[in-house]
Amino acid sequence: MDLHLTDRVAVVTGASAGIGRSTASALAAEGAHVVMVARRADELTAAAEEIERTHGRLPLVVVADLVEVDAATHIAAAVRAHHGRLDVLVNVAGAAEQPGTVLTEEIWQRQFELNFHAKRRLTEAVLPLLEASGRGRVVNFVGLLEPTVVSAAQAAVAACILWSKALARTVAAHGTTVNCIAPGRVDSEQVRRSLPDGEAKQAFIRQRIPAGRFGKPEEAAALVPFLASEQAGYITGDTISVDGGMHWSI
């Protein structure tokens, strides 16, 4: 299937590792001009160089910490200066507090900054470019849908999902779609910190993941090129789980 993404411009946050890195690679494989955003300059540059070796085009690298209020305008300015337009925004960057963390006011504020406000600010900053495209796409990675304990990150995820649905209705007349992807346990740095290899991980899989394994970053990323495509132009305001059935077994 030709997804018609050749020469489309796509911004991917959290692009130095995990799902973000796989998403950038998946879009580049479809011929898109990718703008990779992350905090860690060395890892981000290495990821961009790997994409160039694999797909023949060097992505634009923008080093930014998305919880900084001016990061969104910085990224938007870099996109305008380098490409002059934007077709796709993929908000991947996010993180959850470790299980058992005492939820202080600082943690609540930081989780909402990273998992909701950072996505909102960047989307708002580039929305004029997306609307000018005539077929803009916003994809927000939001994490697990069903809470098992009180979690600041999951509360922020809920805010992001509701905001995304409302935004989808607001921008639909411009041909712009807004969707969320809710990955379950995907093998990544963050997940390995909370569930390293061992019996606890295997017990978690047995109890909660019918597919019998953690997902791969590229499996979560694989949905993005389709949602970014013309074929997905009538899909908006939705949240799609990529979790091996995990959300049915909690």
Rank of each mutant, 00 (worst) to 15 (best):
A47Q: 11
E131L: 07
G84L: 11
D42M: 11
V92Y: 01
H117G: 03
A47R: 04
L60I: 11
A93N: 01
H83D: 13
E43P: 05
A28R: 02
A32H: 03
R110H: 13
N91F: 01
E97C: 07
E68A: 12
R39Q: 06
L86D: 06
H83Q: 14
V35E: 08
G94K: 01
P99Q: 08
V90E: 01
E131V: 09
L103A: 05
A93L: 02
H82D: 15
V62A: 07
A76K: 01
L60G: 10
K119M: 09
V88C: 04
A76N: 00
Q109V: 14
V62W: 06
T73E: 15
E30S: 06
D70E: 15
I51K: 08
L122H: 00
A48S: 10
A93D: 02
K119Q: 09
V35Q: 08
G56E: 07
D87L: 08
D42E: 15
H83M: 13
T23E: 06
E113I: 01
H55P: 10
E49H: 15
A76P: 01
L122T: 00
D65I: 04
V126H: 09
D65M: 04
L44W: 07
I75G: 01
A125T: 08
L103D: 01
V61A: 10
A64S: 10
R57M: 11
I107S: 08
G84W: 09
L86E: 06
A76M: 00
A72T: 02
A95Y: 11
A81S: 15
D65L: 04
A118Q: 01
A64Q: 05
V62G: 07
Q111K: 13
I107G: 06
T123C: 06
A96F: 10
E113N: 04
E49G: 15
E30T: 03
E43F: 12
H55I: 10
I107K: 08
A41Q: 14
K119C: 07
G100N: 11
A118C: 05
R53N: 14
H33T: 09
H55S: 12
Q109Y: 10
A47M: 10
T54L: 12
A24D: 04
R53I: 12
V102A: 14
V126M: 11
A118L: 02
A28Y: 00
H55A: 10
K119V: 05
D87M: 10
P128S: 05
A29E: 02
V62H: 09
T104W: 04
F112T: 05
A71Y: 02
R53K: 15
R121K: 06
E97H: 10
E52S: 14
L89Q: 02
L122F: 00
N115Y: 04
V34P: 05
E52C: 14
